[in-house]
């Protein structure tokens, strides 16, 4: 009797806290989406009307479009490189034993636990000093390097889970069937790791696409969507910024759903 009551009570607590945390997580997101449809010039309530006016403004605003382009470019390059390096590192970290395995794992993973702003600053110093010696200044390419440093460990961890659950004897089996090293990768290893690699790529894209801290420190005068919004908050904003935010959400939610679907199959 008491156990049943306890069970009922635990259910209420658990589902209640789930509801609470989801509301908590989505408050700012829905606030932004709501404000993006505000007809008036100011971010105050009540709305003067509901319209898509600011979405139109967004596509006429060259700065915003530039930022969109920069974000996309940085995210695509970062995704490709970080996923490739991260996948290889995952195989080395999980499957191989060599001198310094532990040191390798630590080195490959430690940027995960490093505050992004500080990483950005440390890299900014590095690029400034190098830039003075080698004559370059910060911009899109330094931002991409920063993103890769930060995002590769994420990609590695995601792929590592897949590698960990991967039965390596199928590679031996393929070799026994007559496959060369390249054919083993092409027909067996890559197809089997693919769900992990694909979700790693999606996460890499999203982390880079929405990254503020590193871009802010490392992109020089180049603006991406997040830094564009940050500067907008400071100036005293209009519903243009919530509209940009809403645009940023769309690929995110689609990709996360896709990644999840893939990992289940």
């Amino acid at each position: 009797m008491i156990a049943r009551l306890e069970g009922r009570f635990i259910d209420i607590v658990l589902w209640g806290s789930l509801a609470a945390i989801l509301i908590f997580f989505y408050i700012p997101i829905f606030t932004l989406i709501a404000f993006s449809f505000q007809e008036g010039r100011f971010l105050t309530l009540p709305f003067e009307g509901i319209s898509l006016r600011w979405y139109g403004e967004l596509f006429r605003n060259t700065n915003a479009l530039n930022a969109l382009w920069n974000s996309t470019l940085i995210a695509i390059i970062t995704t490709v490189i970080a996923t490739a390096i991260g996948t290889m590192a995952a195989i080395a970290a999980v499957r191989y034993r060599f001198r310094g395995t532990d040191a390798f794992r630590l080195l490959a993973g430690v940027p995960l636990a490093f505050p992004q702003l500080l990483l950005g600053i440390v890299l900014l110093l590095w690029f400034s000093v190098l830039g003075r010696m080698l004559d370059f200044s910060t911009g899109i390419s330094t931002a991409i390097i920063g993103h890769i440093v930060y995002i590769t460990p994420f990609a590695m961890v995601i792929v590592a889970v897949q590698v960990y659950n991967f039965d390596a004897t199928v590679e031996d089996a393929a070799r026994d069937c007559g496959a060369s090293s390249f054919e083993v990768y092409r027909y067996v290893t890559i197809p089997l790791l693919w769900p992990g690699i694909f979700s790693a790529a999606i996460f890499a894209f999203l982390l880079s696409w929405g990254n503020f801290y590193l871009t802010y420190s490392l992109a020089g005068s180049t603006r991406t969507l997040p830094t564009f919004i940050f500067s907008g908050i400071a100036i005293g904003s209009s519903p243009l910024y919530p509209a940009i935010a809403t645009v940023i959400f769309i690929p995110g939610i689609l990709l996360v759903i896709l990644a999840n679907r893939l990992r289940r199959t």
Binding site: P28, L207, Y213, F230
Partner: peptide, 10 residues
């Protein structure tokens, strides 16, 4: 995974 700037702004 949504960018921190946006959420904080929200």
């Amino acid at each position: 995974i949504t960018d921190a700037t946006l959420k904080i702004y929200g």
